[in-house]
Design a protein around this nucleic acid. Structure first.
Length: 422
DNA sequence: TCTGGGGTCCTAGGACCC
DNA sequence: TCTGGGGTCCTAGGACCC
């Protein structure tokens, strides 16, 4: 049985989610903006055709958008996450071995399927996804993850939206004209190194001496060469490994110059960090807080600082995290700067400590856990930040907080925002 | 004058991904 | 005026030890 993996992904995924609930967007250029309405992170084919690049700052393309009738949305992660969940549920029926790789991409193991049936299987998967969720997709198939990714990308240009690269000969033809820059794992730095030795296509990368690849691009580059040759180095991870780190970072809607605003914002991030840790059943015994001015600010002094603080016992209690974060802000704060962004980061996540019955402060621990559980439940039921610790103040509703001026309704996760059919 | 060597662990920073 | 957020992996180099 030859190994075969399929990669299915949503076309212009965030934009397609918006289209599902507003058919008037069909055939119109649509983009979805990053947090803070900062830059374009998803574009439909029509928007790409207008020259809107990935990551284009919105304030620079705004005039173009208005002139050309581009519909711009703030990102609506509640909606995209829910659509993603539905798609993956559906995929389970097509293959029991599935790895959810990102919000819009999943690898499916299709090895048990006879090679002659794979294209038909993929077409069926694609059609069913379209019918059940409304999301258009493409499917690429290959003997390794890197080749499945490559097939998927090449499939984007085909009307069928499906490409099976199981066959060596087909593979050679496709790779001859496939840019090295589009190979999964080859970023800007690698491209420059490859170009310096005259390598610009996927076929040339495939034919490299693995030792040269390693020399230029470390073991990561060597693996890519093997993967392009059909020798698997990257396994399918049907069981998601435990998360290693966790972060909450945000740019401010407007610059922060007052310490109280910074304290409240970081308290808000600490609260959110606690929520995420509790949801994953994890804890941490140290956090790093950072703040910095904007590297795009021409005038005014720049400042970028961070501080890591140890916590005596691993915790996921938001109030404890707020106390620690506040100490960090105290240590880091200097006035006279226009701060544009701050965040709280932690790595080396551990399971929460088992309560020690004999420990004298056990009651405090239990009480804290109950408070957090109640807060999580309230926020789950009535929406994020319905209940927040007092230290967060009104930060979650303040002007300097993230902008979402163009967000669509959360059609699928809020009763109040259900779509209407007339 | 001549001043070891090798192992492990940790961290910061780079690179890449979506 | 206005330029995202959140992950993973790898390596070099320092600290430390015997």
């Amino acid at each position: 049985m030859t190994r075969a993996l399929a990669l299915i992904d949503g076309n212009s995924f965030y934009c397609s989610c918006e289209r599902v609930f507003d058919p008037r967007l069909e055939r119109r250029p649509v983009i979805v903006l990053s947090n803070n309405d900062g830059c374009a992170v998803a574009r439909t084919a029509e928007a790409k055709a207008l020259g809107i690049g990935m990551g284009a700052p919105y304030f620079k393309i705004r005039a173009l958008c208005e002139r050309e009738g581009v519909v711009a949305f703030s990102s609506n992660y509640a909606l995209y996450g829910d659509m993603s969940r539905r798609m993956n549920q559906l995929y389970q029926q097509f293959s029991p071995e599935i790895e959810i790789y990102s919000i819009d991409e999943s690898f499916l193991d299709v090895s048990p399927l006879p090679a002659t049936q794979r294209t038909e299987w993929a077409a069926d998967l694609r059609a069913t996804t379209r019918q059940w969720t409304g999301i258009p997709t493409c499917v690429g198939i290959g003997p390794t993850k890197t080749l499945a990714k490559l097939a998927n990308k090449a499939a984007k240009r085909l009307p069928a939206g499906v490409l099976d690269l199981s066959d060596e000969q087909v593979r050679r033809e496709v790779m001859a004209s496939f840019p090295a820059a589009d190979v999964w794992g080859l970023g800007r730095a690698s491209q420059a190194k490859l170009a310096s030795v005259g390598i610009t296509t996927a076929a040339q990368v495939r034919d490299m001496d693995p030792k040269l690849a390693r020399h230029l691009m470390t073991v990561v580059g060597e693996r890519i060469v093997h993967e392009l040759n059909g020798r698997a180095c990257i396994e399918l991870e049907a069981v998601a490994p435990t998360r290693k780190g966790c972060a909450v970072t945000r740019s401010f809607g407007t610059r922060v110059t007052a310490k109280i605003d910074m304290e409240q914002a970081v308290a808000g991030y600490a609260t959110r960090l606690g929520e995420k840790l509790r949801r994953h059943g994890l804890a941490t015994d140290h956090v790093t807080v950072f703040m910095h001015t904007s590297p795009f600010d021409e005038e005014g002094p720049q400042r970028s600082v961070s501080m890591t603080i140890d916590i005596p016992e691993a915790t996921n209690d938001s109030l404890e995290l707020i106390r620690v974060a506040r100490r960090a802000v105290d240590g880091l704060w200097r006035s006279g700067f226009r701060y544009s962004k701050a965040g709280i980061i932690t790595d080396d996540l551990v399971p929460p400590p088992v309560p020690q019955r004999a420990l004298f402060d056990n009651l405090d621990h239990e009480r804290a856990a109950k408070v957090m559980a109640a807060m999580d439940e309230a926020n789950r039921r009535w929406g994020r930040a319905t209940v927040v610790p007092a230290a967060v103040g009104v930060a979650m509703k303040s002007a300097f907080l993230t902008k979402f001026e163009r967000r669509s309704p959360r059609y699928t996760t809020r009763w109040a925002e259900l779509p209407f059919v007339r």
